[in-house]
Every structure is written in structure tokens, then in C-alpha cells.
């Protein structure tokens, strides 16, 4: 007997985009599988970005460019620094983020950058008044809101989980803190009643990527690891690491075509802003 695994995950990889997958029969199979697994769990844990809130085909670099452009065009900024360009803001954002990830406090061997810290450091780099950091943060959240939409599938899953008496938590590796993520969720129409806890690595420092957040959550919630079911789009952070920590896990990958589009978009933005599609930047290029 030969059994191949990963049919649902494969279908998700091959789908044209999120909507195409969630409109297919595989989505029903996925929901069935998750409902079965939920029977053995007390807590349903979901990643936020590209799981509960879906991004489009823009790359992170493009998103930062959009934020930089909007920020540099704001009246208060023009007044304080008339010669400030989008490009300067973008470079500052990238390098200050790299600094934050490199030099932030290590907790259990894990480091994490925080947007609040990044923004303040950006103002030093750009020689702008410190109080403008809040304006950068507000601009970034504004652009995020415009480029995110809620996942109807995740919303339905969360509703079913709560209806079945499970706790629903959200766990995100992100430079946005809990309040900032909660603001985005609300702005995208996701009721705060849908989840009981929201963990952001910007607050906890321990994160999914290193695997350190899962034991922390289990201990904090007083439950055995196998009572948790986690879902998310990252193979390492949302599937391998929780599995290694003893959690049940379901990988919900970003469709490959969307990832390819984001890669193309990254290189196109690189070329448009820096003159070369492969310009070396202190950030990761999206990858399959």
C-alpha cells in the first residue's frame, strides 16, 4: 500500500491564489480535517499575517516603499525636512529594522525587532524630530490596513472553534506589538471576541521561528502541548517548530503563484528604486 501525504497542502501550493483555494473542494476537506483535529485540542492557535489576515501580491519591499512615499509626502514631514525623499525613508526603514533584529535583547536565544523602536531609530537616521516616529508608525499601520483583508475561512474556523468551546489564540512573529496587530484585526472587521489571546513576538521576544514561544504559551496557559492545534503559512514557524514542541500543526501555505508574484514585485521595486533588480538590501527576498 502506498500512501502519499500532503494533498491539501499541495492543492494550496498549486492554487492560483487564496480565493481560488478556499473556493475549491479542498477547503472543505481542510475544514473537515481541522474539525477532527479540534476534537483533541483545547486551544486553536493561528498565525495572523497570511493566515487570519491575507496579504496581496505586493512584496514587503513594495509595502515599505508605499509607507515611505506616503510619509515623505505628509505635510508635517515636508515642513520639517523639505528635501527628504521616499528613497531615504525606505533605506532608513530597511537598515533600522536590520539593526533592531540584530541588537535587540535576546530572550531564550531569540531576538525580535519592534516597530516602535525601529521608528525611533529611523528618526535619528533621517535627522528628524523624535516625535515624528509616531507619524511613521501611524503611516505604516494605515498602509497595512489598506493592503490586508480578512480570511473568511479563518474567520469561520475561529467561529466554529469558539462554538465548540475551544480557546482561540493568535500567535504572530511580527515587529508590530499586540495593540497594533489588534488594531489591524479590528480595522479588517475581525471582532476581538473571536480570540481570547494575542501573542506578538514584538512583546514576548520569544518567537515561533526559534520555537521558543510554544513552550512559553503552553506553560502560561497551563496546558499540555498536545492540547494545542496551530495553523499558519510558514513551514518552519507554523508547522515544524510547533510540531517539534509537541503541538499539533497544520501548514496553510501561501500559493506558489502568489509567492512568485511577490518575488517579481520585489525585484521590480528594487530596480525601480535602486536601479538593479538584485540590489543588495538588508532584508530577505520572498522565497518558496
Amino acid at each position: 500500500m502506498i500512501e502519499r501525504f500532503g494533498a491539501i497542502e499541495d492543492a494550496m501550493h498549486r492554487a492560483k491564489n487564496f480565493d481560488a483555494f478556499f473556493a475549491s473542494s479542498f477547503a472543505d476537506d481542510l475544514m473537515d480535517r481541522l474539525e477532527q483535529r479540534m476534537n483533541h485540542a483545547d486551544v486553536i492557535s493561528l498565525d495572523v499575517f497570511d493566515t487570519v489576515l491575507l496579504r496581496d501580491e505586493k512584496s514587503e519591499l513594495s509595502r515599505f516603499r508605499d509607507v515611505a512615499e506616503r510619509f515623505a509626502g505628509r505635510a508635517e514631514v515636508r515642513e520639517a525636512a523639505p528635501d527628504l525623499t521616499m528613497r531615504a525613508c525606505l533605506v532608513a526603514r530597511l537598515y533600522c529594522a536590520a539593526t533592531a533584529y540584530q541588537l535587540s535583547i535576546k530572550v531564550n536565544g531569540a531576538t525580535e525587532g519592534r516597530l516602535n523602536d525601529i521608528a525611533r531609530n529611523m528618526m535619528v537616521s533621517l535627522r528628524l524630530p523624535a516625535e515624528m516616529a509616531a507619524l511613521w508608525i501611524a503611516t505604516e499601520l494605515e498602509v497595512e490596513r489598506e493592503q490586508l483583508r480578512p480570511s473568511i475561512f479563518a474567520d469561520a474556523l475561529m467561529a466554529r472553534a469558539m462554538g465548540a468551546g475551544k480557546q482561540v489564540i493568535l500567535v504572530s512573529d511580527m515587529y508590530l506589538d499586540q495593540s497594533q496587530i489588534a488594531e489591524l484585526l479590528t480595522a479588517c472587521g475581525l471582532e476581538t471576541a473571536r480570540y481570547t489571546r494575542l501573542f506578538s513576538s514584538a512583546d514576548t521576544h520569544v518567537n515561533k521561528r526559534s520555537g521558543t514561544v510554544f513552550p512559553m504559551i503552553a506553560e502560561e496557559m497551563g496546558l499540555h502541548p498536545y492540547r494545542f492545534l496551530h495553523l499558519g503559512d510558514s513551514l518552519v514557524s507554523d508547522f515544524q517548530r510547533p510540531s517539534q514542541a509537541g503541538w499539533w500543526a497544520q501548514h496553510l501555505p501561501v500559493p506558489d503563484m502568489m509567492t512568485h508574484a511577490r518575488i517579481r514585485d520585489h525585484h521590480a521595486t528594487c530596480e525601480a528604486v535602486f536601479g538593479r533588480p538584485d540590489y543588495p538590501l538588508p532584508m530577505s527576498v520572498p522565497s518558496l
Binding site: 500500500m1 502506498i2 500512501e3 502519499r4 501525504f5 500532503g6 497542502e9 499541495d10 501550493h13 513551514l235 508547522f239 515544524q240 517548530r241 510540531s243 517539534q244 509537541g246 499539533w248 500543526a249 501548514h251
Partner: peptide
């Protein structure tokens, strides 16, 4: 064990001989 291994499920094939 396969289910909790953390290996990408798409990469796994199980051949089972009775």
C-alpha cells in the same frame, strides 16, 4: 509519528507492507 514529525507532508510517501 509522520504526522508530528514537522516534515512537509507533500514530501512524504508511506509504503506499508502487511
Amino acid at each position: 509519528i509522520i504526522g508530528k514529525s514537522g516534515v512537509d507532508p507533500r514530501l512524504i510517501t508511506l509504503v506499508s507492507n502487511p
